[in-house]
Design a protein around this nucleic acid. Structure first.
Lengths: 115, 115
DNA sequence: TTTTGACACTTGCATTATGCAAGTGCAAGA
DNA sequence: TCTTGCACTTGCATAATGCAAGTGTCAAAA
């Protein structure tokens, strides 16, 4: 991928990857063990299929996630974080902490199993 | 402002605020002491005036930043982070750290005075 | 074996956000 | 008065997003 860098700033460059309303939510779901398309769909935010499809492809392209053959459903693929993707953990935590502290109505234990 | 919450997840709610490619860059600039419209414009990423104007208004609306009379240019306003905005520091740091570690070509000391 | 249904997408299209250029209003300085 | 700089706003083209509907693949059910 040849994304043109806006600047050498690590914040700007990181935002070029996770600077949208959906990417990090998928990373969050993967972080909590979700791996199938449907599981990401089941998250309470309600991502559209085309957006999810696009973001999964980008996550793989960027090396943050990888496809692997699902064991639960033979013949199907699933997704999981690579080490590069997992290293976003502190970012996720900092964001979650800020939200919990500054936005009322937020709470942990959001990830109830969709079904 | 009546932004409808996508979910009670603190990550999702925080992304509703900072989930774009520009907001956090302005927060970064304020964090480093920038306060005037022109100073934000001078950042290397090259934000468009209408986007900057929009984001500054939203930052104020959300309580992350506040206007105050500029001392450098009397009669003009300037912007600075509120304590709520300043508390995004750890988010900024986590993102910067990730970028520095995972994206080549990034470096600190990005913020050279525009002029 | 045919059908059904779930899953993982893709496609089309309307709506919204973004990017760029140009224009406006205001205050200080020449 | 005329100009200059700053802080915006406005218009418009392009790109991203959201929603609904359609497609292909497989596997279990009939």
């Amino acid at each position: 991928m040849t994304t043109t860098k806006r600047s050498p700033c690590p914040v700007a460059c990181t935002l070029d990857i996770i600077g949208d309303k959906w990417t990090l939510l998928i990373v969050r779901d993967m972080h909590f063990g979700r791996s199938h398309f449907k599981e990401f769909m089941d998250s309470p935010e309600g991502i559209a299929t085309n957006i999810l499809s696009d973001r999964l492809a980008k996550l793989v392209q960027w090396g943050l996630a990888e496809k692997f053959p699902s064991e639960a459903s033979p013949g199907r693929d699933a997704y999981r974080l690579t080490s590069k993707g997992s290293s976003l953990g502190p970012v996720l935590k900092a964001i979650a902490d800020w939200g919990l502290a500054e936005i009322k109505g937020t709470s942990k234990r959001l990830l109830s199993k969709g079904k």
